[in-house]
Design a protein around this nucleic acid. Structure first.
Length: 431
RNA sequence: UCCCGAGUAACUCAGUCGGUAGAGUAGGUGGCUGUUAACCACCCUGUCGCUGGUUCGAGUCCAGCCUCGGGAGCCA
């Protein structure tokens, strides 16, 4: 049987249509009932007047409860009084299922309660809007890479080798082969793939068994990583800048309604244009110390440092060339200052902080072996990775963008857990 | 792991000086022809996180524990 979607109602003014969905809210004045129906594409108010519908249908209203599934038929009418501009004058209604004691009312709830009921909370307006923006961000990402001739290389999630030992790994038994680890990054595999495809990217879940309790961390999150042969650190930053602007323009075009629902001030996003400021780590430390931070040269930027720094600019800011000591082993040493590596983090504005980490990779066999030994990493585990430096090694760079952090920033959220359908945090594995 | 904070009805919270447990919302019943978090009247709702202690008497004071939230560290 044919039915229609709420997003299309304006095309059917004056016509009778059928909508299938869920009862979002209801109210009655006795002889006139109001039903708010949502179907995933929108919300519309249905109006049922006693005497204008069959008494049996009119009486069904009394059985309705919030989130009951129903099918309503009515005539589309333009009406100033209706939010959205259109409403349905109902002529028929069928009940599909009566919901009982739906826990999430259209009233304030605490975040713990809402995320305990995430399987239901997904239906509410706010998560609906956020996840629609997430959907568009991901489409923008894939579109950008496709248009720019990057090839998608899916990297393994179960790995034997350790990527970045700095973080903690989730461990699991891998049949009879011993321990396996859930991937923290696909980068090393992308570095293998550039010698076949030139420019590649991967997009998948990554896992960090860090007991972080902050609004910026998840234990399972989605990361986009790109790797480009023959790009140096500068080229890499140019690419990231272009990439991020593409994403922002895309969502500004597609997500106006969602931003309105989220009360996101989009003027902040409209300022995201080339060029992004680029400051060296040296300069960042200087600026931070002047601003009152306790940071010492040599240590990584803390969360508050990032916040201070990003509030100095209205656009995302690159901080490049960090001390070797606070970055991963695979980054290329600075040719003139061996205490630095060629890298850049991109910090999102409005206090959001790091959303991208990127670097030029060490393409020299001997110096890479040296770094692995310095970090006390098992050389064996990196045997295949090192071989890439033996067979046609080229300068190359890459970066990783945290999807949830990007969604958090673009939507103007205060906590990352809202940016993913079913968040995994230190104490949450359910639902 | 460390530092701070919270835990009272299904939800959000109040609970003074230690003296028999409260409100709003949700739910139920009735009323209402334009509601938008409707409104009006009435009804229902309790392991006060747990254990022990002090006390004639503990939601309230003390000790320990548990759970959760935020931050630090670490990172995207």
């Amino acid at each position: 049987m044919k039915f229609n979607y709420i997003e299309d109602v304006s095309k059917f003014e004056g016509q009778k249509i059928t909508i299938r969905g869920w009862l979002y809210n209801q109210s009655s004045k006795g002889k006139i009932h109001f039903l708010w129906v949502r179907d995933g594409t929108g919300i519309i108010q249905g109006v049922m007047v006693k005497g204008e519908v069959d008494d049996l249908v009119f009486g069904l209203y009394d059985q309705l409860t919030q989130e009951s599934s129903i099918e309503v038929t009515g005539t589309v009418r333009k009406d100033q009084r209706a939010p959205g501009g259109y409403e349905l004058t109902l002529s028929d209604m069928k009940i599909i299922q009566i919901a009982q004691d739906y826990p999430i009312t259209p009233k304030p709830h605490g975040s713990t309660f809402l995320f305990d009921h995430r399987h239901l909370y997904l239906r509410s307006k706010r998560p609906h809007a956020i996840l629609k923006v997430r959907n568009e961000i991901i489409w923008a990402i894939r579109s950008y890479f496709y248009q720019n001739h990057f090839v998608l290389i899916d990297s393994p999630i179960l790995t034997g080798a350790v990527g970045e030992t700095a973080s903690t790994l989730f461990e699991t038994q891998y049949l009879d082969e011993g321990k396996a680890y859930l991937a923290q990054t696909g980068q090393l595999y992308l570095e293998a793939a550039i010698a076949s495809f030139g420019k590649v990217y991967c997009f998948g879940p990554t896992f960090r068994a860090e007991k972080s309790k902050t609004r910026r961390h998840l234990t399972e999150f989605w990361m986009i990583e790109a790797e480009e042969a023959f790009y140096n650190n500068e080229d890499n930053m140019d690419l990231q800048e272009d990439f991020l602007i593409y994403i922002v323009n895309w969502v500004l075009e597609k997500c106006q309604n969602e931003f309105k629902e989220l009360e996101r001030d989009i003027s902040a996003l409209e300022k995201i244009k080339k060029p992004f400021p680029r400051i060296s780590y040296d300069e960042a430390v200087e600026r931070l110390q002047k601003a009152g931070s306790e940071i010492q040269w040599g240590s990584d930027l803390g969360g508050t440092d990032e916040t201070i720094l990003t509030k100095m600019f209205e656009k995302p800011v690159f901080v490049y060339n960090y001390p070797k000591a606070c970055k991963a082993f695979y980054m290329k040493p600075h040719p003139d200052r061996k205490e630095l590596v060629l890298c850049a983090d991109l910090l999102a504005p409005e206090g959001y902080g790091e959303i991208i980490g990127g670097s030029e990779r060490n393409d020299d066999y001997d110096s890479l072996v040296l770094r692995i030994k310095e970090e006390n990493l098992p050389l064996d585990a990196y045997k295949w990775y090192l071989e890439l430096r033996k067979y046609g090694s080229v300068p190359h760079s890459g970066f990783g963008l945290g999807v949830e952090r990007t969604v958090t920033w673009i939507c103007g959220l205060s906590h990352i857990r809202e940016a993913i359908p079913f968040p995994r945090t230190i104490y949450r594995l359910y639902p």
